[in-house]
């Protein structure tokens, strides 16, 4: 059975030290929870560069291509529309819609990609929410959470206390 071990830290440095120590013991399923982004947390957890820009690029290209093809097909090919004797396929006039759809698709890709893809949202029930004190994670608290095997839970909790964590709690995942 898996369990979550949570601990709240007063200051940033012990938090990073604790994260590094746990990783040194082979616990990789760690997470840091804070009210605002902490750049150092990425290093402490050994996180790699985000791949969101690729998602945005793909979305943007897909949008721009859709926009251009849509205009070419509708007024250039399917029903060639003669307005002021301009050619049915007039590339310069297609730029605004191509650009707008590129931006629209890229933005949607980022938003939906972040929430559904990267974050796995909506997920309003998560083991960390079982701890009432965890409410401070979005207000002023710095929390470390570790997903470990049930038998490792107690030693990990001890380790967190050693680094000065308060409110150390163990949440069994399956209730």
């Amino acid at each position: 059975m898996k369990a979550y071990v949570l601990g709240e830290f007063e200051r940033e440095q012990p938090l990073y030290d604790a994260a590094r120590a746990l990783r040194a013991h082979g616990h990789e399923s760690l997470d840091i929870h804070s009210p605002y982004p902490l750049h150092e947390a990425d290093h402490a957890l050994g996180l790699k560069r985000s791949t969101v820009p690729i998602v945005a690029l793909v979305g943007g290209l897909a949008g721009a291509i859709t926009g251009y093809l849509l205009q070419w097909y509708t007024v250039g090919h399917d029903w060639p529309l003669n307005v002021g004797n301009r050619p049915p396929h007039s590339a310069p006039a297609f730029i605004p819609v191509t650009f707008e759809l590129g931006v629209l698709f890229a933005s949607l890709a980022i938003f939906v990609g972040l929430l559904a893809g990267y974050f796995g949202f909506p997920r309003t029930h998560h083991p960390v929410f079982e701890v009432e004190a965890f409410r401070s994670a979005s207000i002023d608290g710095l929390w470390l959470s570790a997903e470990v095997e049930g038998k490792d839970a107690e030693p990990v909790a001890q380790e967190l206390r050693r680094f000065g964590a308060r409110n150390v709690s163990i949440v069994p995942e399956a209730k």
Binding site: D31, I32, S34, P37, L38, L115, P122, R123, T124, A137
Partner: peptide, 17 residues
């Protein structure tokens, strides 16, 4: 808030997004 938990693994993508 969709269940936001201030996770560093989320903040990393969030900031870039």
């Amino acid at each position: 808030s969709f269940g936001w938990r201030g996770s560093a693994r989320h903040w990393r993508h969030y900031r870039i997004g």
